[in-house]
Amino acid sequence: MNAMIEINDLYVRYGKVNAVNGMSLSIQVGEVFGLLGPNGAGKTSTLACIQGLVRPNGGTVRVAGHDVSREGMAVKALLGVQLQKTALFEELNASELVELFAAIYNVPMSKADVAALLAHFGLSQKATARPTQLSGGQQQRLALALAVVNNPQVVLLDEPGTGLDPQARRGVWTLIRRMQSEGRTVVLTTHSMEEAQELCDRVGIVDGGKLIALDTPQALIARHAPPLPPAEAARRQPNLEDVFLALTGHGLGGTHASQDDESAWLAAVA
């Protein structure tokens, strides 16, 4: 397999905070790779180094063989980006935003191309709507549309599913799968184990700026999930959250219903 992104011994510090603390990982061409971790784990900071938005305090990042710190502009041209906070110019409407971003990447786009892209992301009816006139799910889809205006080899999505209702989230998942089927490498962050399990070929579990495990969701569960207590085993399968808990001793901070009995059970068997 070929590596699309290679991260080697990466460190990011903000003042005294070690946001990324010696991370190494390599992401393969064409895979959907998930960085799973709680708030403050260093997911966004890791993406920011790939995007050339943050200069690492140590280590290197290569995208398609280009060193990000030396060939930042070349790397940016290869990437499609959706930032954690969707921040679009409020005075422009959806098609104007698509035209602007296409022009920024020097991609020629006719009015018909713009309409087709918006239609692809379910926004045909919203071509003249401004970002503030869109629902959360529509805003997210617009952000995803803008992430592929340059037909990128790699798409970096920071929490694409966060803050959406279940239906909108599934819509976003469909779009992400479609990006993969178009041949793109997708890197996404999430703190939803469900999202990681549904979408990702491989998942890197991040905590405290470190990668603590990396594998396919199934392999991670098989290797790290502790056996469920009998009462729970009848109700559900072990999942990534169990893996996370076993590896770190704390939860993902999600709203998993059985988290409390799990901790109680873990404490009892320990």
Partner: peptide, 14 residues
């Protein structure tokens, strides 16, 4: 502060 500049910074716009 809204993150709009950061979004532009993530593109190859000089």
């Amino acid at each position: 502060d809204k993150g709009q500049l950061q979004r532009l910074h993530a593109t190859p716009l000089p």
